[in-house]
């Protein structure tokens, strides 16, 4: 386990980047369509939200400011939901 929180955050970010790219490549190379493709898209947005949270919390230091971290996380979650809504409208 990495003891330095910055190195741990970096490792998580790299893992999440790889995961989202792999999901996108899987969609591209298989015949994902309809709900399966939308589920993959929602997963990619979820991973993006997690990455943004890590950068705010660890790189930008909001982990030490719980009031601001909560505020940013709420706004970020609402924004991710907006993106998810706009993304899923064409398949409804």
């Amino acid at each position: 386990m990495l003891r330095n929180p910055l190195l741990r955050a970096w490792g998580l970010l790299i893992g999440l980047c790889l995961a989202s790219t792999l999901v996108a490549l899987a969609v591209e190379r298989t015949s994902f369509a309809g709900l399966a493709a939308t589920g993959a898209g929602a997963t990619i947005l979820l991973l993006a939200w997690l990455k943004a949270r890590i950068i705010l919390s660890e790189y930008l230091g909001l982990a030490a400011a719980p009031f601001w971290r909560r505020g940013f996380e709420i706004v970020l979650a609402l924004y991710a939901l907006l993106l998810l809504g706009l993304y899923t409208i064409p398949v409804l």
């Binding site: 989202s20 969609v27 994902f32 947005l45």
Partner: peptide, 22 residues
């Protein structure tokens, strides 16, 4: 460094939306 992290933060949102979402 904070400015640089902002650039980083924007990219982790921009990359999946532009390049990955199908």
């Amino acid at each position: 460094a904070a400015f640089w992290h902002m650039v980083d933060l924007v990219w982790v949102l921009l990359f999946p939306v532009i390049y990955l979402l199908r």
